[in-house]
């Protein structure tokens, strides 16, 4: 059974159709790559899944439950978590404080609770930023800020993670390291959708790739199939390479 089902998703911004009747599914334990040239609607798909944007048409189901009209915190509490393209840590709180926020119960009468220091350490250690727990986010190098975003996401104990351009701005060594970490999440049973604008970091990582072009579904297949797909090559010809 599919964990995540996006069914005929359409999102319009005024006259602009950012996503047009787009469908895809993610199975349990699967890593799906979602690629497409810049502006093709990848982030918009994530924003619709996460309840940031209301959908114009279509349905989104998670574990068989309809989450199309859920608000963000409801989606998160059902086990879906997104790492945004832009990092947005709270600069006045330490790395540990930023992670802790993501473990707090959604209860107005819970004075204590949330993760203990050991648990926060464990979340940080899963993505190798446990050395930086007491630093402030603005003291961290770019790659570690990105890792903090992933640690926050892990702290919500998701069943599935949506990663929006996790490799952006990283050098080759950092990309390889992060790909290994993502691979480890999968071994721990996590399902994932990884967005990137090209296939570089995804080739060895993902089971399957879905291609989005101008908001439309373009192709789907194994990384090898997609690399050889002529339509995909054409779509990318206008802009950057695959």
């Amino acid at each position: 059974m599919s964990v995540l089902e996006v069914d005929g998703l359409t999102k319009k911004f005024g006259g602009l159709v950012a996503v047009d009747d787009f469908s895809f599914e993610v199975g349990e334990g699967e890593i799906v790559g979602l690629i497409g040239p810049n502006g093709s609607g990848k982030s918009t798909v994530f924003n619709c899944i996460m309840g940031i944007y209301g959908v114009t048409d279509g349905a989104i189901r998670f574990n068989g439950t309809d989450i199309t009209d859920d608000s963000t915190h409801e989606v998160v509490n059902k086990g879906l978590s997104r790492v945004s393209q832009e990092s947005n840590p709270i600069d006045s709180m330490s790395v540990a404080g930023n992670i802790k926020l993501f473990t707090l119960p959604n209860s107005i009468v819970s004075l204590r609770g949330g993760a203990s220091e050991e648990e926060i350490y464990d979340y940080a250690a899963r993505i190798d930023i446990e050395e930086h727990l007491h630093e402030m986010p603005d003291e961290l190098p770019h790659a570690d800020v990105r890792r903090l975003e992933i640690a926050k996401s892990l702290a919500t104990e998701p069943e599935m993670m949506l990663l929006d351009e996790p490799f952006a701005g990283m050098n080759q060594a950092e990309i390889t390291e992060l790909a290994d970490q993502i691979e480890r999440f999968r071994e721990q049973g996590m399902s994932m959708v990884v967005v990137d604008h090209n296939m570089g970091g995804l080739m060895d990582l993902v089971d399957r790739i879905v291609v989005l072009n101008n908001g439309d579904f373009l192709a789907e297949g194994t990384p090898e199939e997609i690399a050889e797909n002529e339509q995909v090559q054409e779509a990318y010809l206008a802009g950057e390479g695959l």
Partner: peptide, 22 residues
């Protein structure tokens, strides 16, 4: 925790929602 969440709302409301908090 409540104070922490209220401050987080001031600093970055979307992060609070992403944390699964209403």
């Amino acid at each position: 925790n409540i104070g922490l969440i209220l401050v987080a709302i001031r600093e970055n409301e979307s992060a609070v929602e992403a944390a699964g908090i209403n």
